[in-house]
């Protein structure tokens, strides 16, 4: 398949997963804010900053020149076009990628994605956001799940689908660590941390109850969301899916590796296999999450380098001029 197509499918998938996860993040934060006392409500804006940190958007937010016109953080995260990672931007970029590979995806996928894009660009979206932000988030989350279901059910599970999976699970692993990170960033010694909210944001409430019963603790929540081998939003599960997809693409048997991305995934997976909540507690959740996120970034970059930027045969013969073109196009995709 065309390298560019693989790249677009991968990013389409990542952006859709990202939109869903941002909605989850916003949802958690809103829930948390609801429990704040009145006096704390006065400074509610500041309770959104940790979320910017968790999503590495603080700089972008502060870079917005005109402070008076700067949107509020929740708006910045959802509907702002100034934020390339807002839900609306994510969907627009997912659609743009889908548009570039319109001939490779099913009509159902396109119709669903295009309708959401049209909705988000319409005044109705802003109206819904202001009237009922929770419902807004729910709709986005539902969309991303629906889209993934449609994807799995309507296109051949061939190479392109494996790239879609790679994008989806890499993004999900990354965002799961960021959602997990929020309670710590919010903490300023006030009350219990909202682990139950985190779980429901990750659609993990039921799974948790089945495994551990009613009481929610940080240790068990972390255990589920990072180490579970069966829960589909846990980091370990996601990495296993990435590993599977990468091996399916390269044709290398599992357990071996032929490209750098496979090696990195395998190594990250191995370290999760032999670790548990103790390691997290030792390092501290934020630091642990950080090092995972670095690994995810490395894997993503290696996938790009291998399949999109420089297939080995071209590497030898590529002219300087082409290098410029590729550098240009790759920039437009990397955030």
């Amino acid at each position: 398949m065309l390298s560019r197509v693989a790249d677009s499918l991968y990013w389409m998938s990542r952006y859709i997963e990202r939109a869903g996860n941002i909605a989850r993040l916003v949802e958690v934060n809103m829930e948390v804010l609801l429990d704040l006392s009145l006096e704390q409500q006065g400074s509610r804006e500041s309770y959104w900053y940790p979320l910017l940190d968790a999503t590495a958007l603080t700089e972008k937010y502060q870079a917005l020149e005109d402070e008076s016109k700067r949107p509020e953080v929740p708006e910045f995260l959802t509907l702002s076009l100034e934020n390339p990672d807002s839900i609306r931007s994510c969907i627009a970029q997912a659609r743009e990628n889908a548009r570039m590979v319109r001939d490779q995806i099913s009509d159902e996928m396109w119709l669903e994605l295009n309708s959401l894009h049209l909705f988000l660009s319409s005044p109705a979206a802003a109206a819904l956001w202001h009237r009922d932000p929770e419902d807004f988030c729910t709709q986005i989350i539902r969309f991303s799940l629906l889209f993934q279901g449609i994807t799995d059910a309507t296109i051949p599970h061939d190479e392109g689908w494996q790239f879609i999976r790679t994008g989806r699970f890499l993004e999900r692993a990354d965002k799961t660590t960021r959602i997990l990170d929020i309670p710590h960033r919010l903490q300023s010694g006030r009350g219990p941390l909202p682990w139950a909210t985190v779980l429901s944001s990750c659609s993990a409430r039921a799974a948790y109850r089945q495994l551990y019963g009613g009481e929610v603790t940080e240790r068990l929540a972390t255990n589920l969301l990072i180490f579970s081998d069966v829960f589909p939003r846990s980091v370990r599960f996601c990495l296993r899916m990435v590993d599977e997809a990468l091996h399916a693409i390269s044709g290398t048997p599992r357990g071996q590796y032929s490209i750098e991305a496979e090696r990195l995934t395998g190594s990250a997976l191995a370290s999760l296999d032999f670790a548990g909540p103790d390691e997290v507690e030792m390092m501290g959740l934020p630091a642990y999450a950080d090092q995972l996120q670095t690994k995810f970034n490395d894997i993503g970059q290696q996938v790009f380098a291998t399949y999109v930027l420089l297939p080995s045969e071209v590497a030898l013969q590529i002219t300087e001029q082409q290098r410029l073109v590729y550098a240009y196009t790759s920039q437009s995709q990397q955030q």
């Binding site: 398949m1 065309l2 390298s3 560019r4 197509v5 693989a6 001939d103 190479e159 790239f163 693409i249 399949y307 297939p311 080995s312 045969e313 071209v314 013969q317 590529i318 082409q322 073109v325 590729y326 196009t329």
Partner: peptide, 24 residues
């Protein structure tokens, strides 16, 4: 058939190839 953009194609030694995940 494939829909390609200029950056998907590369000309080497008087032949045109498209860049795919499996090579040229």
């Amino acid at each position: 058939i494939e829909l390609v953009e200029g950056r998907d194609l590369v000309a080497v030694d008087g032949h045109v190839y498209m860049r795919t995940t499996k090579g040229l």
